[in-house]
């Protein structure tokens, strides 16, 4: 398969603010697109995740791979199609940047531990328990599917003495993020 690095949409491109649709057809063309999307993620400097709408395809597909980071729990390369957060708890502040927002990083609060249900690129159901940096990456990418950027979730530059301390305690109630 010949793979291509796709052009990344850069904010304030308003297409990044639109909601993406679920994937319904799992075929060769989807696999080809996912290969290109992964190639694009790996071409970016330090990119650990990417979402389909970042390259102008408004379908609910994300790729995350934080295995390049030392000492971080991870599931390796993850292709998540139609992902849903089924459970979540804890809340931590961390610093994020985005391939679609050059030259800016900011502090964002995310769920510390999540359970994600998704299907893989072949349509096979998967469930993942994840935490910390990997969970943050998945939430960042899933936001793109709903037209949200980390800029929509910035918290104050002041404060946050302890980045890993839960802010809101345990919350088990599942709802749409």
């Amino acid at each position: 398969m010949i793979m291509a690095v796709l052009e990344i949409l850069v904010y304030p491109d308003q297409r990044l603010k639109q909601k993406s649709q679920p994937v319904e057809v799992f075929d060769e063309s989807l696999l080809h697109f996912i290969a290109d999307l992964e190639e694009t993620m790996r071409a970016g400097p330090g990119g650990v995740g990417i979402a389909a709408p970042q390259v102008g395809r408004f379908e609910r597909i994300i790729i995350v791979d934080v295995s390049c980071k030392p000492k971080i729990k991870n599931h390796g390369r993850l292709v998540m199609v139609n992902p849903e957060i089924a459970d979540k708890e804890g809340n931590v502040v961390g610093r994020e940047g985005c391939l679609s927002v050059p030259d800016y990083t900011g502090k964002v609060a995310r769920w510390d531990r999540i359970v994600v249900n998704a299907v893989d690129e072949f349509g096979k159901p998967q469930a993942y328990n994840m935490e910390g940096y990997e969970a943050r990456a998945v939430q960042h990418e899933m936001d793109h599917l709903d037209g949200l950027l980390f800029l929509d979730r910035l918290v104050s530059r002041r404060g946050s003495l302890f980045p890993r301390t839960p802010l809101r305690g345990v919350e088990k109630k599942a709802d749409a993020c």
């Binding site: 610093r95 940096y133 980045p163």
Partner: peptide
Amino acid sequence: VHLSEIDILRG
């Protein structure tokens, strides 16, 4: 005094 590393997530 506490030091923590900042590992910026880029997605």
